[in-house]
Write a protein that binds this DNA or RNA. Structure first.
Lengths: 139, 139
DNA sequence: TTCCATGCAAAGGGTTTGCACTCTC
DNA sequence: GAGAGTGCAAACCCTTTGCATGGAA
């Protein structure tokens, strides 16, 4: 019943001491796959735990990233997006709205990944499908 | 003899009035495929035309991008990289050094691009192969 | 003279840092 | 009471903007 592991356990499992703010941030991000900027995380966390600062959100996101709980997506030059889906997958990015949508790894395939010289290690393969929707951007 | 078109002609061809600074920036970027940050462009241009400001480099890079002379690469959260290779292709990005290397479109293939709903228009498909080299980063 | 391009410096926006306070063990 | 976690504000870095100057048509 792996699905029932809650946010607090996810933190403990990776060795992160649980605090009020960390738990609140975990609950915003981890229960379901989402794509949020630091500011969006801050806004949502503050709804639940108003005594949360921007610095703590940044510290915690960095910590979560180091522990592999979230992934940093580089899709937009303006701001970083954090992805709580840590399974391998691809992304669809709406330039107009800033919306990120997951594309399951099974749906796409990248053929021809080049051979890497010695001492060069593959980290990951990012695929970003950029689209325009002509819809209004999220504020 | 398309290859012999020089930087000045490239600008005129897309309707950009040639100035000293624009020409210097064009000569840094356009004669061969390169991947440079705004700061790297500024540094190289200043070697040739010291009376060039940061603002002009940014203005000009934006102009070049709008005219399709360069492409903005989103590979690093810290800074934007400009790519003077406008043909479709993919990228290899070295996280340690910041080095970007082109992968010709013929060498790779992306299979399974999802169907897009009405009103959503494909802009482009970015593929970034992220590697670690354990080498020293460029300053 | 009227634009447009430029340089300079200041402003802007996202992210990080310094530091003092709190809490926990 | 030592160490870690936090909030606040200032600092930082890349990029953009405002404004006055300068040059070209």
């Amino acid at each position: 019943m792996e699905k029932l592991i809650n946010a607090g356990d996810r933190l403990r499992n990776v060795g992160i001491p649980v605090t009020l703010q960390r738990l609140a941030i975990a609950q915003v991000l981890l229960p379901q796959p989402t794509h949020l900027t630091a500011d969006q995380v801050l806004a949502r966390v503050k709804n639940v735990v108003p005594e949360t600062s921007r610095a703590t959100v940044y510290n915690t996101l960095k910590l979560f990233r180091e522990k592999g709980l979230v992934r940093e997506l580089i899709v937009d030059a303006e701001r970083t997006v954090f992805d709580s889906n840590t399974a391998p997958h691809f992304h669809l990015y709406d330039t107009d709205t800033g919306q990120v949508t997951d594309i399951p790894a099974e749906m796409m395939q990248v053929i021809g990944t080049p051979h890497l010289p010695d001492g060069v290690e593959l980290e990951e393969v990012d695929v970003i499908i950029r689209v325009r929707s002509q819809r209004q951007p999220n504020s």
